[in-house]
Structure formats: C-alpha cells, structure tokens
Amino acid sequence: MDMNLADVKTIESQPSVPPGTQKGSSPDSESEIARLRTQVESLEKEVTRLKTQIEDDAIELQATVDEFVLAKSEVERAKADLERANQVKSAFLASMSHELRTPLNAIINFTRFVALGVQGPVNEKQASTLNEVIDSSRHLLTLINDVLDMSKIESGSLNLLFDDNVDLKPIVESVMSTAKGLTGEKSIELRAKIADDLPAIRADRQRVFQILLNIMSNACKFTEKGHVELRANRQGDEVVFVIEDTGVGIEPEDQAAVFEAFRQTASGLRQGGGTGLGMPISRSLAEAHGGRMWLESEPKKGSRFYVALPAQPPDQAKLPVTRMLKGGSHE
C-alpha cells in the first residue's frame, strides 16, 4: 500500500513541481503537503472501503460456488435417478409385453381350435361368433403392440433389425393379403401396383410390413366405398409407396394431428377403434429407416399417404444407435 501511495505522490507532484523550483518550507509547499495529505487520507479510506467490498464479494462468490457445487451434485443425482427410472420403465414394458401376449396366445389359439371344428362340429353361427373373438383378440394385440412401440419411440430406444437386399414385393403382397380381412362387409376394391424395377433395399422387413399395414388398415377403416390402392415406385434415390383411398378424407386443420401421438382427429375418434398411434408410429419407423412419411388429403374425397424409403443403404451414423445389449434375461 505504501508503494502505491508513493507512486500516487510522484505522479501527482511531477506536473505541478518542475525540477529546480522546490523550496524547503515555503507556504506554497506547506499547503501542497496538506493537500497531498488530505488526498492520501481519502485514498486510504477508499482502499479500506474497496478492501471491505472485495472481502464481501469474496464471501458472496464463495456462497455462489457452494450453491453451484450443491446444484451440480443435485443434477448428477437427478440424472442417475432418471437413468434408473428409464431402466425400470424398459423392464416394466418388456414384462408387460410378455404378460399380455402370453394369455392372448391361449385365447386366440384355443378359440381357433374350437372354430376349426377339431373338437367336434361347430355350426355356422357358432363359427362366426368364435371368429369375432379371434378378430377382437388380434385387435387387442395390435393395440398392445402400438402402445408399447410408442413408449419405445418416446424414450428414444426404438431399434430396427436391418437386413440387406430386402425384396419389397413379398412384403407388399403379404400386406395386401392381410388387408383383405380388414374391409369386412364394405365394398372396397383393394389393389396393388408394384413397379417392375423396384430395387431391393436395406430395411427392417417386419417394420416395413408394419408401416404399410398400418396405413392400409387406416385407409380401410375410413373408406366406405371405392378403392384403396397401394402403389410402389422408384423415384430417384428413393422407393416411394403411395396408399390412396376414396374415404372420408382429412380436414386441413386436422392433417398435422394425424402424425401426433395421443391426438386422434375428431372424425378419427368418432370412427373409434384405435389408439391413434398407428400413423405416428409409422412415421417414426419410416424416419428410423432414413425415410419420410407425409399425406395429402381432400375432405370427403379421400387421402393419399406417402412413405419414401432410401433405395441406397442408409448411412448408419444417422440412424438410431442400437443400445448395448444387457446380459442375461428377466423373469
């Protein structure tokens, strides 16, 4: 501090006292000394004040640092809790899937066995009732799968099982034969137009089937008469599927909601019979392939749903990372 004061004095005195003009005890120099003393005193006060302020700031800063350290450990604890909760959720969903599917295996197949007449003759009415049980059970299975798939998508843990050179024609044929059972009593013409030059792609067969069947069954649900047509073409680097129906169509203001989970449109809810998760799941599955899904629709005329999947093998880096496999199995 002394050093600093000396510096101040030197600086202050230099301009006002040129060399060779200094005198021992002139009134001028006495007043100058008094002036400097006052200045020094005021500077000392200022320094004391600043020192106190720095000490206060240091205490405050330490408090902030302590708070930060505490907050950091809280965040770390919350992160660990979240990871644990996610693991519990995954295990719960896996066990739900198992616990719900096991009784459905018995319900569907026991009913089928009776309906087939293996245990004795079944009349037409009884067979039809038993087939209703089977259809309802299959519907329940779809709903269970949808809810479980959606929770996988929401938690970002949807994994695809990719194969190279997947031939799309048998998948489309299989979708069409399954869709035949979805039209019920309605007079809808189901047709497929598959281009001859459709390339084999890198894809998850079951998921491509799921995407197309979801859209087909949606189209059949909302179409009373006319046609539902599935077309598959190559367009540049993509294979594009178009599912066209002559159904109720979708109001422009409802079109975005079609792809939002848990937000069925007003007419969708009126028609009932679904979780409203089919289209959001299908779009997520298309995107997980590196592809896209969108729609065009005119109310009362019909809708066109488009799915574009890359014809070339998708860049692995852009796709969801397969999670590390956990060892063992759950009970």
Binding site: S90, A94, S97, T102, K152, S157
Partner: peptide
C-alpha cells in the same frame, strides 16, 4: 417367446 421388445 412372448418377450419380443426390441432389445430382447
């Protein structure tokens, strides 16, 4: 199996 979630 009835355990057919993705990772399984």
């Amino acid at each position: 199996t009835a355990s057919v979630m993705n990772e399984e």
